[in-house]
């Protein structure tokens, strides 16, 4: 009954909503595929949880080596005492790859002078978090790095 009192108003409202809804749907139909297209598909590689890095004899005391852990760089450090430690080599500040500095006895990032001690703790410079630590397992002279 109310509809009859202002038929033009409701008709106009209906047209307004239908039209603006239609335009929105039309815009979404254009932009959604574009945005979805720009979002790259997840490449489902096998999830790497452990990697063989080499033999004990390959590494000198007081040295650091970058190795591949899946598609990420890791760093294996052999301390002065011959102890092995492994971390993610991706600096927690802005994603650069860190390195071992013999002169400092530290893990160092060249990009913004970030420093980590040999437990991976961020001790100076801008890094906000410690490096992710990996487990080092030595089996028959072979060094295996694993991620829990």
């Amino acid at each position: 009954m109310d509809n009859q009192s202002s038929p033009n108003g409701t008709k106009r409202d209906f047209l307004k909503y239908a039209l603006s809804g239609g335009i929105l749907a039309w815009l979404a139909a254009i932009f959604y595929p574009i945005l979805a297209y720009l979002n790259p598909p997840k490449v489902t590689g096998a999830q790497v949880t452990s990697v063989k890095v080499g033999k004990i004899g390959d590494f000198e005391n007081d040295s650091g080596t970058i190795f591949r852990f899946g598609n990420q760089p890791g760093i294996l450090i052999k301390t002065k005492d011959g102890e092995f430690k492994a971390f993610s080599a991706t600096c927690t500040h802005l994603d650069c790859t860190v390195q071992y500095r013999q002169d400092m006895g530290l893990i160092w990032c060249a990009c913004h002078n970030g420093r980590y001690d040999l437990s991976g703790r961020n001790i100076a410079g801008p890094p906000p978090r410690p490096l992710e630590a990996y487990n080092v397992i030595i089996k028959n002279d072979e060094i295996l790095v694993t991620k829990s």
Partner: peptide
């Protein structure tokens, strides 16, 4: 992709102040 960032790395001069 699997090398450490080299020492002395810095951006182009026009980003240097922000860096």
């Amino acid at each position: 992709l699997f090398a450490s960032a080299p020492a002395g790395i810095s951006p182009e001069w026009y980003f240097l102040f922000m860096f």
